[in-house]
Structures are given as C-alpha cells and as structure tokens.
Computed example of a mutant assay.
Amino acid sequence: MPDTFRFYEFFAGGGMASLGLGPQWKCVYVNEWCKKKARSYKINHSGAPRVDVRDVAVATPADLRENADLAWASFPCQDLSLAGNGKGLQGARSGTFWPFWNLMKELDSLGRGVPVIVLENVVGALSSNKGEDFKILAKALSSAGYRFGPLVMNAVHFTPQSRPRLFIVACKKNLLIPKSLRREGPDGFWHTPKTAQAYDSLPASTKTDWIWWNLPRPEPKKVELADLIEDAPESVSVHTQEETKRILAMMSEANINKVEAAKKSGKLTVGTVYKRTRKDSDGNRVQRAEVRFDQISGCLRTPAGGSSRQILMIVNGKDVFTRLISTREAARLMGLPDEYQLPQKYNEAYHLIGDGLAVPVVSWLADNLLYPLASVNNGGA
C-alpha cells in the first residue's frame, strides 16, 4: 500500500480541502480560476503543484500529468443555494460542474479514470429546481460507472459555526467497499429528510447505484465561539455607539429581549448578529438585525449577492459593543490554523473564507471514509 494517495483539487479556493485531507494525500493538480484565491493557495501550500489559474473548461487530460486516486470538486454554489437565482446546473456559476465532469469522463476514456470523486456544495443542491438538479447529478455519476452517496455534514459538530454542506462521495463500481463503510439505510445524523427524499425521487435504475455511507459520529466539540474571539483584532474596529444603537434599533422585541437577558446575566457574553430582510406586521419588507447568544456562529457567507457580513455583539454588564467579525476569527471558525496567511484586505479575506470548506469536516470525511476506501483498494487490510 502506498504511503500517500494522490488527488486533484478543483475549484480549490484557498486550499482548505488539501488542508483537511492532510499528509496522507498528495495533491498533484490544482485548478482555481480566481487569481486572488490562487495567490492564497500558493502562499499557504508551498509544496503543492503550480496552480492552474484558468477556467476548468480549457483544462485537458494532458494538464493532469499524474493519475490520481481522488478528485475533489467544490464547484460554485450560487445557482443552487436557497438565496440563488434558481438556474441550478444551467447557471453560469454552478454550471461549471459540466466542464469538470467532461474532463473526468475524458480521463476515463483514456484509461485514467479517477476511482473516487467528492462533490461538495450547499445542501440546497438536494432540492434545487424541485430536486431535478440532484437527479441530474446522480444520473451523471451512475451513467459514468460510479456508485454514489450524499452526506450532509455540519461544521457545528467540529467548530462553533452552523454550516451544513452536502458531500457526494462517488466511487467506481468495481471498487471494493468494506461493510463497515456502508449502511442499509439512512443515518439521521449524516442523512437529513431531504436526503431520503432525494433518494426516493430517483428512477430505479439510478437508485441501484446509491450508497448509504456509514460514518462514526464525532465527540461533542469543546470549543465555543467566545474561545475564538480576538482581544485586539487588527482587521476590524469596534463600532461607534451610534452604530451599535442603530443595530439595536433594527431588532425585533424577541431579539431585544435576548440582549437584555445577556445584560442581566452579569457575564461577558459574545453573540453574533446578521442583518436580514423580514416582513413586518403590515407585510412590508424591512431590514432586521437578529442576534444569537448560543455560542454558535451563523454560517459565514460571502458578501456577494446581498449577504451581510457577520457582526459580533459583546455584552459586558450594561455595556454593549458591536463590530464586524475579524478575518482571523472567521478563519478560526473554519478550523484554519492561525499560521494560515490571510489576504490583507478584509473583503478579499472574508470572501476567501466564506467560500471555503470547514477543515475539520474534510478531515473527518477523509479519515473515516476516503482514506479507508483508498487503502482497501490499494493493498491495505
């Protein structure tokens, strides 16, 4: 059995999949069309191959000089997300899945097919366009000779951030799958009701290639949001009291009550705030500020498409302070080590992080499914 397995990293961003996979996996090809993200990848992965900073549509098998045991593709989610435009896999961004997939099929026609493929996206991919997008993905995998199974993995089990994501793990039909890696039916921890609905909607010919992957459950996380907060962040400043009052004025009575309860506790309390558009009692759409003090951050999102940047609210007795979450705090919520170098510009760093992967989630998937699967098919026990 080899000491390490080789993999391709598509839509690589800042290389968080590579960090999560760890030293047991060697990256032999990287594709990331965004020059800014590619720059971060290069800075933080000194031993990685040269980043192919081109549209995946122009990549050819010749660019992938070495064969690989795994292909990782976190293709864009904008057209599949609940906040997206509904174009699904036909959209300009999420539709970049197809050039990637065509490249995988070209490799296969040359006898270089990748044994295991991981597709990562938002959980909305299970139900976008009334489930048709997932059905298309499933049929594409099945018709190309892959068995597949989706897992909904939430970063909240590893870091204090609510970040559910869909991971579709597909493997060639001739691969041996140990009994320990599969189940007879869904696991409520890794398979949501929408996962089961997606399965039920598939035609019988595609269902035969479905796998209910079996993963152990992680131990309860020990880190809380307050543990990740910087005392003196360099990338952000505390809001003026006028700005904090404006944020409080945007809150509903229920959210104001949360703030008052935090004041009465007498403890230093850290919460997160998101600005959202809600309907008032008259049906008018108004912007609201919503706070949570459960020591869990809301999902980090990119500023694109109208999503607001996450705000921290720090309550210390009667005093209330607010500020944007710092870039280092956001990186910690993704499980990135403090040694990971972030872009100097706030928006650039926040976009890189918000578009990325929670590193501990990738590690859990790799250690408990991808590595065992590769090992047993390459001479392992």
Rank of each mutant, 00 (worst) to 15 (best):
M1Q: 12
F5L: 15
F5V: 01
R6K: 15
Y8Q: 05
F11H: 10
G15V: 02
A17T: 07
L19W: 04
P23T: 04
Q24I: 00
E32N: 06
K37L: 15
A38W: 13
Y41W: 08
I43D: 03
N44P: 07
H45T: 00
A48T: 01
V51L: 11
V51G: 11
D55F: 01
D63G: 14
D63P: 15
A68L: 06
L70C: 06
A73E: 02
A73N: 01
S74V: 13
F75Y: 15
A83Y: 03
N85S: 12
G88E: 03
G88Q: 02
G91M: 03
F97D: 10
W98L: 00
G111M: 06
G111F: 04
F134Y: 07
L137W: 00
L137A: 01
L137K: 00
A138T: 05
A138G: 06
S143N: 09
A144V: 11
R147F: 00
V152W: 04
Q161Y: 10
I168P: 00
L181I: 08
R182M: 08
W190D: 03
H191N: 10
A196F: 03
A198I: 04
A198S: 15
D200I: 05
D200H: 13
W210Q: 09
I211W: 04
N214V: 00
P218W: 02
E219T: 13
K221G: 13
K222C: 06
V223Q: 11
A226K: 13
D227A: 04
L228Y: 09
I229T: 08
I229P: 01
P233N: 05
E234C: 04
V236N: 09
S237H: 09
H239P: 05
A249F: 12
E253M: 12
E253W: 06
N257E: 14
V259S: 12
E260C: 03
A261N: 14
A261R: 15
S265W: 02
T272E: 08
K275W: 05
D280M: 12
Q287M: 15
R288Y: 07
G298D: 08
C299Q: 09
T302G: 01
M313D: 02
V315T: 07
K318D: 14
T322C: 15
E329A: 04
A330R: 03
A330G: 06
E339D: 08
L342A: 10
H351M: 13
L357K: 03
P360F: 09
S363D: 12
A366P: 05
D367M: 05
L369F: 07
L370G: 10
P372V: 13
V376T: 08
V376K: 02
